Amino acid sequence: MRTSPNRLIAVIFGAVYVVVGLLGFAVTGGVSFLATEGGLLLGIFMVNPLHNVAHLLIGAALVIAGLVSTKAAKATNVVVGAAYLLLGIAGFFLVGTAANILALNTFDHFLHLASALLLLAVGLGAERESPRVALG
């Protein structure tokens, strides 16, 4: 794992997202599962119970992939990065609507976009296979 940027990033990001998911439950007492507004984590990131569960699942997927293999970590980094990119962009249009079932706010959008950029950069850029040349 020490020699693989994908595995390292997957485990670190995964662990952070698991912790964030767990901490989120401390600020969402009394908030309904799909509330469009939730508690504030660290005073700025809005979360509801569904958002916390999503963090736990994504974090677990990243940690597991990072522990399994470089190939699994790379694929998971790209998939989660792409999902966060879409969520980061779509989130700007969801705020203030009934479709905001993750209780997203502006700080969440920028954090999701930053996560997406790093996960995609590592997932797509690190450990690329070199082209094989046929000897003939």
Rank of each mutant, 00 (worst) to 15 (best):
L8F: 05
G123A: 03
L102H: 05
T36L: 07
L56T: 07
F93M: 10
S130Q: 07
K74E: 02
A73M: 01
D108K: 03
N77I: 04
A75K: 09
H109M: 15
R132K: 04
V79F: 08
L111Q: 03
G123L: 09
N100L: 13
F93H: 13
D108R: 04
R132P: 00
G39K: 10
A15H: 02
L94H: 11
A114N: 08
V20Q: 05
F33A: 06
G38Y: 11
A73R: 00
L87T: 04
G39V: 11
S69G: 09
V78L: 14
D108N: 15
L104H: 08
V95Q: 14
N100C: 13
K74I: 00
L117F: 15
V20R: 06
S69P: 07
I44G: 03
L124T: 03
G125H: 09
A114M: 12
V31K: 00
T36F: 14
V78A: 07
I89E: 05
H112D: 11
F107W: 11
A75S: 15
L40K: 10
L85R: 03
L50N: 03
F110V: 15
A83H: 03
A73T: 01
I89F: 13
F92M: 09
G136V: 14
F25T: 04
H109S: 12
V133Q: 12
V53A: 10
I12V: 15
F110K: 02
